[in-house]
Structures are given as structure tokens and as C-alpha cells.
């Protein structure tokens, strides 16, 4: 590595491409590719929130997943704390699975319906803190539940006993369990009611302050991102068409696509 990366950069993505083969015909030949992510570069500073916005199918989720090897990287590199993690083996990538956590879009789908809240939140603890005994894990889970605004006595309930917003809090508690540095929030509020959205976003902001977290925050409309992001990436059809600080995106958008996204945001003069 010849370049010098500024000290406060946590994650850097360079020319990332993720192409999914389209299998056609009876021989399932790879004739074509879906360019889900096509030559994308960006940086995430430690302690900041980077918003990633774009319409459905633009490749946002794919970027998030490729960071934790849930999607295959076709080309390009991902650097975490100056370390290239793109080609890392499962074994050497393991510590990063503790540092980087994900919060998923659909709270009805991201929690196993057959497990209790305790079992769900303690799963990452079982993987990364093998030496912990059950009482310690239980204590930690109760603590986490309180931290995300749930009652610790609900620890043995099943997901279906909670509302969408509460489930998303459980998902957040699971992501926080192993004390990560970096959290990929993949549209954590898009399936929630507007009033609940604000609560969850506020919770995420409070947690960021308290735990010095770094977020990659994915959303499909700018209204949600406006609140939380320091820096915004605007994405369409697998490419980032504009990236700038949140302020300059709102005040002087350069790209036509960004302008059309902005036009869709209802004007809230009270902000």
C-alpha cells in the first residue's frame, strides 16, 4: 500500500464491482451479468454516519452485504482500518465479523421466529465470547434490552409478541451485543410507521454518541437520511452519481438524479 490513508478513515471502498451472473438456457451458461454494483468508491470516517441513498434495485443492499462477504466482490477492494479485507480467508476475516455488524430492513424477517429474544441477542455472544457463561450472557442481554428501550423482563418472549418497531430494537440490540465499531444499517426504518421511524432514528443517534459508533446508513429516500447523515452517497443503477456532505447535497445538488430525489422530499420548514 503506497497511498497514505488519513488516520480517521475507518472504511474505504475502492472501485468496487459486484456482478451477478444471469444463468440462461438449459446449460445454465453465464451469458450476461447484472451489474448490481459497478465501480463504486467511497470512504467512511470513524464516528461518522454515511448515508447511502438510491431507488429500489440500485445496489445499496449489495454494497452493504459485500462489506461482510454476504455478496461476492467481482473487482475492487475494501479496506477496513487500512487493512485489505477483500480477499481475506474466512478465518482471518472472523475478527471483522465482530467489529462490523448489520441491522436489517425487515424486522419481521430478520429475527428467527422460533427463538426467544434471549436466544436471538445472545447468538453473537456465543460466537465471539465463547468463554462467557449463561448468567453473564443473560445479564448482558438484559442490559442491551434496556439500552434499546425495551423491558428486560421480556427477555424470554418470542418475536411475534412484539411490534415492528420493538422488533427492530431487538435487531439493534443484537447488532450491539459484541460491541462493534461499525454498523451497516440496511434501511432499518423503511418498513416502519413514520412516528416509529423517528424513534428508531433517534435511538440510533443516541447509541452512536454513547458508543462512538460508525454507521453506513442505507435508505431509499433522502428524508430519512437528512436527519442522521454527515456525508451522503447518491446511488443509481449500481453507480454513485454524487457524493458530498449532507448540507451541500441539500443546498446545492449537482446531479439531476439527486435533484429528482430531493424534489420527492416533503418540505418540512420546521427543521
Amino acid at each position: 500500500m503506497t497511498e497514505i490513508i488519513p488516520k480517521n478513515t475507518l472504511l474505504e471502498v475502492r472501485n468496487l464491482k459486484v456482478h451477478f451472473p444471469v444463468l440462461t438456457g438449459i446449460f445454465r451458461r453465464k451469458n450476461d451479468f447484472i451489474r448490481a454494483v459497478d465501480d463504486v468508491s467511497f470512504k467512511v470516517d470513524r464516528g461518522s454516519t454515511v448515508g447511502l441513498v438510491g431507488e429500489s434495485g440500485s445496489g445499496k443492499t449489495t454494497i452493504g452485504r459485500s462489506l461482510v462477504k454476504l455478496a461476492p466482490v467481482t473487482e475492487g477492494s475494501i479496506l477496513y482500518e487500512n487493512e485489505d479485507i477483500t480477499q481475506m480467508s474466512t478465518k482471518s476475516f472472523f475478527p471483522y465479523r465482530k467489529k462490523i455488524q448489520m441491522i436489517f430492513q425487515d424486522p419481521y424477517n430478520s429475527l428467527n421466529p422460533r427463538l426467544t429474544v434471549y436466544q436471538i441477542i445472545s447468538e453473537p455472544l456465543e460466537i465471539h465470547f465463547i468463554e462467557w457463561d449463561k448468567t453473564r450472557k443473560r445479564k448482558r442481554v438484559e442490559e442491551l434490552l434496556q439500552k434499546v428501550g425495551l423491558e428486560s423482563k421480556h427477555i424470554d418472549r418470542y418475536p411475534h409478541e412484539f411490534s415492528g418497531g420493538q422488533r427492530q430494537r431487538i435487531g439493534i440490540a443484537r447488532a450491539l451485543a459484541v460491541e462493534p465499531e461499525f454498523i451497516i444499517c440496511d434501511e432499518p426504518v423503511s418498513s416502519l410507521d413514520v412516528s416509529v421511524q423517528a424513534q428508531i432514528i433517534n435511538l440510533l443517534q443516541d447509541l452512536q454518541e454513547e458508543l462512538a459508533l460508525t454507521y453506513l446508513f442505507i435508505a431509499h429516500d433522502l428524508a430519512v437520511i437528512e436527519h442522521i447523515s454527515d456525508y451522503v452517497l447518491v446511488m443509481t443503477k449500481g453507480k454513485i452519481v454524487e457524493q458530498a456532505t449532507a448540507e451541500s447535497i441539500y443546498q446545492s445538488p449537482q446531479n439531476n438524479y439527486t435533484k429528482s430525489l430531493l424534489a420527492a422530499v416533503p418540505h418540512l420548514s420546521t427543521k
Binding site: R65, V68, L70, R97, F104, D106, N109, S110, L111, R174
Partner: peptide
């Protein structure tokens, strides 16, 4: 492909 399986994978299960 349900998200709770992806969640488990992403945490290294």
C-alpha cells in the same frame, strides 16, 4: 435467504 440466516452468517455463525 431470509434475513435471520443472513444475520447469523454476517456475525460468523
Amino acid at each position: 435467504s431470509r434475513q435471520f440466516v443472513l444475520a447469523a452468517e454476517s456475525m460468523g455463525q
